[in-house]
Design a binder for these strands. Sequence first.
DNA 1: GCCGTGTCAAGAGCAGTGCTCTCGTTTCTG
DNA 2: CAGAAACGAGAGCACTGCTCTTGACACGGC
Lengths: 231, 231
Amino acid sequence: MAPVIRTARERAREELTLEIKREARRQLAVEGAQRLSLRAVARELGMASSALYRYFPSRDDLLTALIIDAYNAVGERAETAVAECPADDPRAQWRALCHGVRAWAKEHPHEYALLFGTPVPGYAAPQETVAPAARVPLALISVVRGAAGRLEPAAPVRPLRGVLAEQASAVAEQIAPEVGAGVLTRGVVAWSQLVGMLSFELFGHFVGTFEPADEFFDHTVEEMADFVGLP
Amino acid sequence: MAPVIRTARERAREELTLEIKREARRQLAVEGAQRLSLRAVARELGMASSALYRYFPSRDDLLTALIIDAYNAVGERAETAVAECPADDPRAQWRALCHGVRAWAKEHPHEYALLFGTPVPGYAAPQETVAPAARVPLALISVVRGAAGRLEPAAPVRPLRGVLAEQASAVAEQIAPEVGAGVLTRGVVAWSQLVGMLSFELFGHFVGTFEPADEFFDHTVEEMADFVGLP
DNA sequence: GCCGTGTCAAGAGCAGTGCTCTCGTTTCTG
DNA sequence: CAGAAACGAGAGCACTGCTCTTGACACGGC
């Protein structure tokens, strides 16, 4: 594909792009996306702030790059967590996935907030983010898929109706044709529950009640596995 | 308590404080918290920006005031939704509460983001926000409480252990002694699921799959009612 | 080897921000 | 009524994202 060796200029460009992202990520981790400043990044790198615009046309573009990297980071974490489990133990995979995502979120709270908190710019969710963003939910569905045929939801799944039935079937057909639309929908419910729970924990909504939330998290992961019907 | 008629100055102060909040809320609704600007508020009100600091010592304080108002708004919405249902129909109350919260969130997406999205300032969650913030979850628990004795979780509740058992018992004792710690914990799970689902919808994580999310929402509300065991 | 072309960093500058301080004026209170 | 407290306005500081221009450097074709 792309040649391994390009001109010195292009190599320098690539290197500087990485350097900028690295420093931006550092500042993001410390101060949060809100206070991420292009000028501060440039200052830290010893370059003029205007020079930075040769690499990222705007602050939002830099943030978008960080968002994509973050999605890929948490996505890879989820995928490897699943891969490290026995292939015939969906429940262990589920556990590992949830705990992996939580560990990543607690290590990078500001990046988590960037992904699942308030969208920063003018609602611009560029197309190139959707693939990385789908990695975690896809990994989650793949776990359910691996349990197809052995799924035993503790409570009967309510039948889907109307538009929802179509939506769920369309998604199931594309991603996990082996599992029924009802169970797949439960997987989505569990995914949104996971994110809601993590947001509560990281954004401070548990203070004074379920903080620290470690055991609450463990318990809920188990309950949601029951909910989906993982063996 | 406080005298009904104070000096003209105090009345003007109160009125201007409301006016400032009103204009700030207007800008918040249009632009989002990110772009809320003290100077723009002052400009719109025809006053010097410095004068505004006589009423709110900092931008974060103004935001905190808006946060409290928003918590109270959604809290009241949830409470009236419950109150308008038959007292002996917990499931209808649950439905009304969830749909009321969602309706409020869709009417005021930026205020929702202010409450449940990324925390804005340096993690400052002042003490005076916790009471308003608790109104929705308290209303939710009150619904479960009203069903005490008739609760029939479709799936058996996993026993709580260790720290979680203590946390849940402490909360239950203070709020809903009639319901067991296990069911109460399921209520908290449902609450976090509700917020996660709303965040997904409002922050654009459902585009291309479960958008529009109306029927998904309806379905999930029922499933979570089953999960908690509401009759 | 050279030289035009295009890329690059840097500086100045614009419009905007939160916030502070000072300075007269107005309003309340003892 | 006089002193005190509260008030609005203005200037100013340090900062932001972003644009435009200028001059230097590296690159590829001749």
